[in-house]
């Protein structure tokens, strides 16, 4: 009990001292997960919208695969990506292994099915009359689809928050393809794993608290956007 309390005290001291190492780890985490979120959102929102609004061969199979991949084991993704990116692998020539790019790729693979599946559900839940209304007002198919996506914006934002949560809290895959190299590929989750192994609970706890704070801040921002956009409803 004492060591936990001591850990918390040291953790707060580290945070308040703006420790350089801590700051670098935080920035690397935000850079990797932020980039992964942007890429996974572009691909996931497009895929989720397409599968919700268009009928094409193997659409149902694709939806099933996307839903199944929401629970993709991260260590498996890490292992497969390691084999693909390692020097003898098919993409070894790109020399991406143990770089932030490899970590971004791993997080995109993990976040994409979540964003695509939740976007699919959000777009499907929009009343079909919205699309019809846009068409009656002269919208092109693309403009009508945009109107539907706009109606599903809160569901899509939730999908992005869930995708970001999956990316930033991920440890298995980024550890395998990133290698946890200090100052280069070390992120919050891999540091927590490493420092816990070393018995350095203060740093592990400090990073854990920051990770929690980042998650709370993102959810608060999402909640504020939602409140502001629906303000005229009351």
């Amino acid at each position: 009990m004492d060591s936990i309390w001591e850990g918390f005290v040291k953790a707060f001291a580290l945070i308040l001292s703006f420790d350089r190492e801590l700051l670098d780890i935080l920035l690397m985490s935000l850079r990797v997960s932020g980039s992964a979120l942007i890429i996974a959102s572009i691909l996931g929102i497009a895929m989720g919208t397409l599968t919700a609004l268009r009928r094409f061969p193997f659409r149902d199979t694709l939806i099933t695969v996307l839903h199944s991949c929401m629970g993709l084991p991260s260590v498996l993704v890490g292992l497969l990506l390691y084999l693909i990116l390692s020097r003898s692998g098919p993409m070894g020539f790109m020399a991406l292994l143990y770089t932030p790019s490899a970590m971004i790729l791993a997080q995109v693979i993990l976040a994409f099915p979540i964003i695509a599946s939740l976007t699919h559900s959000a777009v499907l839940s929009v009343d079909p009359i919205i699309r019809l209304t846009a068409q009656t007002l002269g919208a092109t198919p693309f403009q009508a689809a945009k109107a539907v996506v706009h109606e599903a914006r809160f569901g899509i934002m939730s999908a992005m928050v869930a995708g970001f949560g999956r990316a930033i809290s991920e440890v298995g895959a980024v550890l395998i393809v990133g290698g946890n190299i200090a100052g280069f590929t070390r992120v919050m989750t891999t540091t927590i794993a490493l420092e816990t192994d070393k018995g350095n609970f203060a740093l592990a706890l400090a990073i854990g608290l920051i990770l929690l704070a980042v998650s709370v801040c993102i959810n608060l921002a999402f909640y504020r956007i939602q409140r502001r956009t629906t303000a005229g409803r009351s």
């Binding site: 009343d127 009359i129 019809l132 209304t133 009656t136 002269g138 109107a147 109606e151 629906t230």
Partner: peptide, 14 residues
């Protein structure tokens, strides 16, 4: 774009 239809149940954008 020169034609429009008002549906019996109006679709309202959020």
């Amino acid at each position: 774009r020169r034609i429009t239809l008002v549906l019996p149940k109006v679709g309202v954008f959020n």
